[in-house]
Simulated scan of single mutants.
Amino acid sequence: MPGIFELVRSAMAAGYIPVVVTNQAGIARGLYDEAAFVAYTHWVHEEFAARGACIAATFFCPHHPEAGRGDYLRQCLCRKPKPGMILAAIESMGIDPVRSVLVGDKSSDIEAARAAGVGRSILVAPGGVGLEAIRAMFDREAA
């Protein structure tokens, strides 16, 4: 997503802890397994770190309520728009939800943020349209 490294650097400079929360229906559908996703996540974290934009953690939901296979076929509390992943991040990372910002690209992201008590949630357009304005917000907060 164009501008994502700059956005994360600006968020860090403003005192935020960058965390990813992501639904991974591909695991539930059997398109890839958790080990492959974890390996990919490790690579992503390394790419961000190499650009000075460290991601503190990634939380993921491997379930799907309709298309999942085996143990992955379930209604759960972690799959967005449920707040489970966000609440887990808040608890394990010591994050203050009221002082937090969730940046998402789907309405389910915003719904999950609200359910978790996140102070601000911002919906960006496909392709990262709007990231520059969010980065500017973080830059003002850091100043």
Results as ranks from 00 to 15, higher is better:
residue 50 A to D: 13
residue 94 G to W: 13
residue 109 D to K: 08
residue 95 I to G: 01
residue 11 A to E: 03
residue 87 L to F: 01
residue 71 D to L: 10
residue 24 Q to P: 02
residue 58 T to A: 14
residue 109 D to E: 06
residue 85 M to Q: 05
residue 12 M to R: 14
residue 112 A to W: 00
residue 133 A to D: 14
residue 126 P to A: 15
residue 4 I to N: 02
residue 88 A to D: 07
residue 13 A to S: 08
residue 72 Y to I: 10
residue 142 A to S: 07
residue 135 R to Q: 14
residue 70 G to S: 06
residue 84 G to V: 08
residue 99 R to D: 03
residue 143 A to I: 13
residue 76 C to Q: 07
residue 22 T to C: 08
residue 12 M to N: 01
residue 40 Y to A: 15
residue 95 I to Q: 05
residue 14 A to S: 07
residue 16 Y to N: 05
residue 38 V to Q: 14
residue 58 T to E: 07
residue 65 P to I: 12
residue 118 V to I: 14
residue 7 L to H: 03
residue 127 G to H: 07
residue 105 D to H: 06
residue 139 D to G: 08
residue 65 P to V: 09
residue 64 H to T: 13
residue 22 T to L: 07
residue 94 G to Q: 09
residue 104 G to D: 08
residue 34 E to H: 11
residue 20 V to W: 03
residue 59 F to N: 04
residue 143 A to H: 13
residue 48 F to P: 00
residue 139 D to P: 03
residue 51 R to P: 07
residue 94 G to M: 08
residue 131 L to F: 12
residue 116 A to E: 03
residue 41 T to I: 14
residue 74 R to P: 00
residue 83 P to E: 06
residue 51 R to D: 06
residue 65 P to E: 14
residue 43 W to Q: 15
residue 114 R to V: 13
residue 114 R to C: 10
residue 45 H to L: 10
residue 42 H to I: 09
residue 125 A to P: 00
residue 58 T to Y: 08
residue 20 V to I: 14
residue 125 A to E: 15
residue 47 E to R: 10
residue 37 F to D: 11
residue 140 R to Q: 14
residue 102 L to Y: 04
residue 102 L to Q: 01
residue 133 A to K: 15
residue 113 A to L: 04
residue 41 T to M: 07
residue 69 R to N: 08
residue 118 V to S: 02
residue 54 C to I: 09
residue 56 A to G: 05
residue 15 G to H: 05
residue 16 Y to L: 04
residue 36 A to K: 13
residue 14 A to Q: 05
residue 94 G to C: 07
residue 81 P to Q: 15
residue 99 R to S: 06
residue 5 F to P: 00
residue 22 T to A: 08
residue 67 A to R: 14
residue 102 L to R: 00
residue 136 A to V: 15
residue 113 A to P: 00
residue 11 A to W: 02
residue 54 C to H: 12
residue 119 G to W: 11
residue 82 K to N: 10
residue 1 M to W: 15
residue 134 I to D: 05
residue 48 F to G: 01
residue 142 A to F: 06
residue 106 K to V: 09
residue 45 H to E: 10
residue 68 G to P: 04
residue 7 L to S: 03
residue 67 A to H: 14
residue 75 Q to K: 15
residue 68 G to H: 13
residue 11 A to D: 02
residue 130 G to R: 10
residue 41 T to K: 11
residue 115 A to C: 06
residue 89 A to M: 04
residue 21 V to G: 01
residue 23 N to P: 02
residue 87 L to P: 00
residue 91 E to Y: 11
residue 40 Y to E: 13
residue 90 I to M: 09
residue 104 G to Q: 09
residue 48 F to H: 06
residue 88 A to Q: 09
residue 89 A to K: 03
residue 119 G to N: 04
residue 19 V to W: 00
residue 93 M to S: 05
residue 48 F to Q: 02
residue 39 A to M: 13
residue 110 I to R: 08
residue 124 V to Q: 04
residue 117 G to C: 03
residue 48 F to I: 02
residue 40 Y to L: 15
residue 7 L to D: 01
residue 118 V to Y: 01
residue 133 A to E: 15
residue 61 C to P: 03
residue 65 P to N: 11
residue 31 L to C: 10
residue 118 V to R: 01
residue 19 V to D: 00
residue 55 I to W: 00
residue 69 R to A: 10
residue 31 L to E: 10
residue 47 E to I: 12
residue 42 H to A: 11
residue 90 I to D: 02
